[in-house]
Design a protein around this nucleic acid. Structure first.
Lengths: 72, 72
DNA sequence: CAATAAAGAGCACAATAATGCACTTTGAAG
DNA sequence: CTTCAAAGTGCATTATTGTGCTCTTTATTG
């Protein structure tokens, strides 16, 4: 999952839950500006920020093995 | 997956591939200091940094639905 | 068209992540 | 105990994220 997909996932999930950026910002404790920047593709959030958002949305940040190996 | 698990995953994967912090730092383009801090649990990397590391390790950052819903 | 709600952006600043360098600690092997 | 490699840490600096405030842009609804 690259950047854009992560953003898309967050956005879609937020839409599904019918939550506005403003509300999500408040619930997660992340600044509204920060969330806006992230969702509009202009951010590079810290892991902590991403997790705060994911948590509230019922999502989980995870690391999984890629099907296509990268090394060698 | 919370912070510690992510760190553990990175570390274990790096060990599995028999790569040192130094080498991973070079391959990923992430500063050695940054990687050290992250692995020792003292960092809060940006998503970009995490992805650089994950990429080289053949791992993928992803967002998945939590089994236990968070919102109501 | 007017009004309202939600999302996106410019500006500026504080907080902190990223980084390099040098030094210490740890662990494995002789 | 000594040596060597890998990992961890203190310090200082630079680059960038996080944030609030204000304003603009987009729908959406009468």
């Amino acid at each position: 999952m690259h950047f854009e997909e992560l953003i898309k996932t967050i956005k879609e999930r937020r839409d599904t839950l019918k939550v506005t950026q403003d509300t999500l910002a408040q619930l997660s404790g992340v600044g509204l500006r920060t969330l806006k920047q992230f969702e509009s593709g202009k951010g590079n959030p810290t892991l902590q920020t991403l997790q705060k958002l994911a948590d509230v949305l019922g999502l989980q940040v995870s690391l999984k093995l890629k099907s296509t190996p990268a090394k060698r």
